[in-house]
Each structure stands twice: as structure tokens, then as C-alpha cells.
Amino acid sequence: MTSTDDLALDPAVDLAVARLVDEFRPRLRPQVVGNVVRSCRRDLSGVPATALPELVERLARTRLESVS
């Protein structure tokens, strides 16, 4: 299981949040984007670490598109 501390230290999460905040800025608040990205990271906790950066961002983008 992924702890909150792990998410806080995960550079893939920070990079995904930054890119997606820029992409969704006109439609969603940065806090919403960050929450979705962290939720996606938790949901993908069993995925191999090398695949996480891309999968987290893709899943988050899909979820954000469905709400914006």
C-alpha cells in the first residue's frame, strides 16, 4: 500500500500535477488536479515503478477530462 509520505516524495506525481495543471487550468482548480493525480497514483500502487509516471498521468488525464 502507498502511504501519503510516499506520494509526497514521488517526483512522477509532482511532474504529472504540473503538466496537468497547465493543461486543465481554465477548467479546473490546481487543487482538484492534484487530488486526482494523487488518487490515480494510489489506485496504481501495484503497477511496476517504471510504468508509473506514464500510467499515472494518462489515468489522471482521462479522469480530469470526464469531469471538465
Results as ranks from 00 to 15, higher is better:
Ser39Pro: 00
Leu64Tyr: 01
Ser68Glu: 02
Arg27Asp: 00
Asp14His: 13
Thr2Ile: 03
Ala8Met: 09
Arg38Asp: 00
Leu52Thr: 01
Cys40Asp: 04
Ser45Gly: 05
Arg25Thr: 02
Leu20Val: 07
Asp43Cys: 10
Gln31Val: 09
Val67Asp: 04
Glu65Val: 00
Asn35Tyr: 06
Leu20Glu: 04
Pro53Ile: 05
Leu20Gln: 08
Val67Tyr: 06
Arg61Gln: 07
Val32Tyr: 06
Thr4Phe: 08
Arg38Asn: 01
Pro53Thr: 02
Val56Leu: 10
Glu65Thr: 08
Pro11Ser: 13
Asp14Gly: 12
Val21Ala: 14
Ser66Phe: 07
Leu20Gly: 04
Leu64Ser: 00
Arg19Pro: 06
Val33Gly: 00
Glu65Lys: 10
Asp10Trp: 07
Glu23Thr: 12
Leu7Glu: 00
Gly34Met: 02
Pro30Val: 01
Val21Ser: 13
Val32Leu: 12
Ala51Thr: 03
Val37Ser: 08
Thr50Cys: 04
Arg27Tyr: 01
Ala18Met: 11
Arg27Phe: 00
Ala18Cys: 07
Asn35Ala: 12
Phe24His: 02
Ser39Ile: 01
Asp22Gln: 13
Glu65Leu: 12
Glu65Phe: 01
Arg58Met: 11
Val13Cys: 14
Leu28Val: 00
Gly34Trp: 05
Ala49Trp: 08
Asp14Ala: 15
Leu55Ala: 08
Glu57Gly: 05
Val47Gly: 06
Asp43Pro: 04
Val32Pro: 01
Ala51Gly: 08
Ala12Phe: 10
Ser68Cys: 12
Arg61Asn: 03
Val13Trp: 08
Leu44Ala: 06
Ala51Met: 14
Leu52Cys: 09
Pro48Ala: 09
Val17Ser: 12
Pro26Tyr: 03
Asp5Cys: 05
Arg19Tyr: 03
Leu52Gln: 15
Val67Gln: 13
Val17Asn: 11
Phe24Leu: 04
Thr62Ala: 13
